[in-house]
Amino acid sequence: MTALLEIENLRVSFPTASGRVEVVKGLSLSLGRERLGIVGESGSGKSMTGRAILRLIRRPGRQQADRMVFDGIDLQARTERGMRQLRGARISMIMQDPKFSLNPVMTVGDQIAEALVTHERLPRRDVRARVIEMLHSVRIHDPERVMDLYPHEVSGGMGQRIMIAMMLIPRPDLLIADEPTSALDVSVQAQVLDLIDELVREKGMALILISHDLDLVARYCDRILVMHAGEVVGACAARDLHKASHPYTRGLLAAVPRMEETREELPVLDRSAWGGT
């Protein structure tokens, strides 16, 4: 399998009172048309990794890699304009909070249509048909009504499905989903992830699923990277997550309550061993 995305030695840093601090410290990965999960606790550098792939680290933050190639394209050599053409069209990102990412003064239908026409020239009638089809595929059953609504008029779960529709309508090759369901409750969470999963498989896309939830990532990915303090501390096939040998990964796994919980006390991480984050 030739890699769709290759990253070598990615570093992201921010200035602080005591000098520049690296929040991603030399991350490398190679991704085919597969589903990769990135897990770790908050602050471990997951989102910064996702954003760096799209070159979305805002100043004064800085990103630098030895190599960052997407489908033969050197991402670091691209102009900002060239990056904008890639974003959305070939690499899409779903963020945690749909309310925050949707434009509040534009109807749902117009936003999805805009996501499509910025990347593809189409007659207006076809645009409308594609938007309706996309809303159907994210299980919105009355797309004609929903198209005319504004973001504040839809529930959290529907807002997230609209986000997904918007991100997938240009048919990207790589979808980066950063905690796509953390703002949703369990029943809706499973629906949204099943949906992403189905669309990813159907369209042969690659997926990077970023989450702090180990069980969730194990359910929806083929391969998993575990991050801690800006570094990848473990990598394994999703089905082997529960056999992971790295002590940090083992510590995280053990701390999660189980459906059949019989332990009187949950084991906690010894933070001192990990630099006290």
Partner: peptide, 14 residues
């Protein structure tokens, strides 16, 4: 909260 912090708080509540 993160899972490891959640574990600490759940233990405390218990």
């Amino acid at each position: 909260l993160d899972v490891s912090v959640q574990a600490e708080i759940l233990n405390l509540l218990k």
